[in-house]
Amino acid sequence: MTQPQYPSSDTQWPRWEVFKQDAPNRPHQAVGSVHAGDPQHALLTARNVFVRRPAAVSLWCVREDDILTATPEELTTNFALLDTPGEAGTYHVGVKRTNKRSMTFVDLSGTVQASGSGDALRQAQVMHPDVLAWMVFPETAVVRTDEDPGTVESWFAPAKDKTYKQQQHYGVIGRHVGELKRAGLMPGRAASEEGA
């Protein structure tokens, strides 16, 4: 892949999509992105931005240029996405399953062997025909935190002790809010978004 040149410190670095795993045996989920010059910088920035609270055991970062994303609507007008070139090998597949209120985009759901990005997208579409978005990227593009207990401890444990960041740490005054809600003076979530 070609590396753009950046003439000054005021020009942005490449964007990396960040995937966070909340607990062992849970899928990595796309949480957002960071800008970084190199893989280590990307992982450190991802931790600072997305792991200021507990619940993380692993972070992955993938350069935006290495990711192919599509929605069903996009594929109705842009078939060429299925011909996107790329190296042959193992590809990760992420899918978005619901429109419910959420703080994550796709869940990574497994891998496929593909001849390129477009082929991986085609396979993802066959495996998961009824989802709201697909994402694929090659395994070789992933940079990740180490899985050994020492790394997990030093990277992710400090957030656990900072209980003052949790709202449960503070007492509640004003029980009236519940009463207001019942009286219809404090509308909560729209009914269509309940249950997320």
Binding site: G32, R52, R101, M103, Y164, K165, Q166, H169, Y170, G171
Partner: peptide
């Protein structure tokens, strides 16, 4: 957080969950 644009909505859900701590520490 309930808005129609996915990425904005998701950022808002994440922000609201953290912002509640800001509100409560101030109230306390």
């Amino acid at each position: 957080a309930g808005c129609s644009y996915g990425p904005y909505s998701r950022a808002m859900v994440r922000i609201c969950s953290e912002e509640t701590f800001h509100h409560k520490q101030g109230k306390e």
